[in-house]
Design a protein around this nucleic acid. Structure first.
Length: 501
DNA sequence: AAAAAAG
């Protein structure tokens, strides 16, 4: 069974038959070894459950033996406590192996052979039984950046699809086109041997635009896309949802936040619930602000499972954060150029985050004028350009990528060791307030799957000082300072301490 | 004036 071609991102979305190009390049590291060290030995008393007297899962059994993981490059990224609150009477047992999950042999082959996984990560061990066990309760799941959330919901979708029913049965909604494409690539790779069909629902470029009413109805079994297009296909009746049994929101806090995609997301959720009697809803993100957490627990079904992490325990220990005080805008460029990019490829790939599209193109011009080979991505580019920039970066052809918050969430490129905040993330309606969720997502682009990484926050002026100290307070962690922005040795020391030199 | 997505 061939994959359904992606209508919307035709040339750039690799199919399962054409393996992603980076497969051939990033071979140096050993396969990811999850949870291969811990467990029964290092039990500790669990914190008592405070909420609703609901039963608490024995997640403490998954705690890692700290003494055994010294000097280990690929650490378990989320060894702090994940707090589980389960509903109903269903007891869940964490899965220490994928075999315990009753997956099809085809799917297991995808996990071991294509994905090269050995064992479930912690969030996978806890959440997969909840996702896969009847009565398939809704789930709100928070877990650290780079800890393997995508695998949780991708496996959920693949294992709940009936291969004999040629109709949409699983839907996944993402905040950006890039994330939709990336998630589709993962799904096709993981599901390579299952024959399950999939399609990407993102807006098409004007060049290959086909009016929705002239298009054939969707028969792909899994549809992954952005909210506007999904909504459009649904209301044009080209995407039938009566067989949908699992609905996933990736970056769910943003998808359901007041200033995010709330209206579209809710509309999609309600329309599916109307057509499809019991559709399981999965909400995944690394962040849930208190407001959003409160809201999302109301919109899912009354009986649902929850996994949460305290915000103080959310920063990745493997990623060292720094602040750099500079006198003016130009010195930000100088720091990037002379103190960071000078190290070249030794540091791996770098993403520089800026606040605005304008800021992106200014910085781009400046660095290009200094002779650096950088690329820039932001939402004003057309889809073909966006795809090209992402592909070049994922293929390792470009070393330094400037981005707006377009790539702040979910973008997974394991070779990114360095994140630079050229502008700090701030709330769009109130620029003196930091956006702590976006901050966490940005720094999570480094240190994927427990790898080492460094973040440099470039600070200029009192406002930046205030914002960064609010971020420190929010996560209850102190960000180390690079003493002198002009001193090369200070940066060397910082990078060394981060494990990158 | 300001990310993203889409009409």
């Amino acid at each position: 069974m061939a994959e359904t071609a992606s209508n919307s991102a035709p040339s750039t979305t690799p199919t399962a038959e054409a393996p992603a190009p980076q497969e051939t390049k990033k071979t140096t590291e050993a396969p990811v070894r999850w949870a291969d060290l811990e467990d029964e030995a290092s039990e500790e008393p669990s914190a008592s459950s405070e909420d609703k007297g609901a039963p608490e899962l024995g997640v403490e059994n998954l705690k890692i033996d700290e003494s055994k993981k010294i000097n280990k490059f690929l650490d378990e990224p989320e060894d702090s406590n994940i707090k589980a609150v389960t509903a109903g009477e269903t007891p869940y047992t964490s899965a220490f192996t994928f075999e315990e999950l009753n997956l099809s042999p085809e799917l297991l082959k995808g996990l071991y052979v294509e994905m090269k996984f050995e064992k479930p990560s912690k969030i996978q061990a806890i959440s997969l039984p909840m996702i896969l066990t009847p009565p398939h309760l809704d789930l709100i799941a928070q877990a650290h950046n780079g800890s393997g959330k995508t695998t949780c919901f991708t496996l959920g979708m693949l294992s709940r699809v009936d291969p004999n029913l040629k109709a949409p049965q699983a839907l996944c909604i993402c905040p950006t086109r890039e994330l939709a494409i990336q998630n589709l690539e993962v799904l096709r790779k993981m599901g390579k041997h299952t024959g399950i069909t999939s399609e990407c629902a993102i807006p098409m470029d004007s060049s290959n635009y086909i009016p929705i009413n002239k298009r054939a109805p969707v028969i792909a079994q899994v549809v992954i896309g952005t909210p506007g297009t999904i909504k459009k296909w649904m209301s044009a009746k080209k995407l039938g949802v009566s067989n949908v049994k699992i609905l996933v929101f990736d970056e769910a806090d943003h998808m359901l936040a007041e200033d995010g995609f709330k209206d579209d997301s809710l509309r999609i959720m309600r329309d599916i619930e109307k057509m499809s009697s019991h559709c399981q809803v999965l909400l995944f993100s690394a962040t849930f602000s208190d407001t959003v957490k409160n809201f999302v627990s109301k919109i899912v079904k009354r009986d649902h499972n929850q996994l949460f992490v305290k915000k103080e325990e959310l920063s990745l220990e493997s990623v060292k954060q720094y602040k750099v005080n500079v006198p003016d805008e130009l010195s930000k460029v100088m720091v990037i150029k002379d103190r960071i990019l000078e190290f070249g490829e030794r540091l791996g790939q770098t993403i520089i985050f800026v606040r605005t599209r304008n800021s992106a193109s200014m910085l781009h011009k400046a660095l290009v004028e200094f002779g650096y080979d950088v690329t820039t991505i932001q939402g004003a580019l057309n889809q073909a350009e966006r795809d090209k920039i992402v592909k070049e970066f994922k293929d390792g052809l470009t070393q330094v990528l400037i981005s707006t918050d377009l790539l702040a969430r979910g973008f997974d490129q394991q070779q990114v060791n360095l994140v630079i905040n050229y502008d700090l993330p701030v709330k769009h309606d109130n620029r003196v307030e930091p956006d702590c969720e976006v901050y966490l997502h940005r720094i999570g682009r480094a240190g994927r799957f427990g790898r080492k990484g460094a973040v440099f926050n470039l600070l200029c002026g009192d406002m930046d000082q205030m914002i960064i100290s609010k971020i420190e307070n929010h996560f209850d962690s102190k960000i180390a300072e690079v003493p002198d922005w002009r001193n090369e040795e200070d940066f060397k020391a910082a990078l060394r301490s981060a494990g990158l030199l």
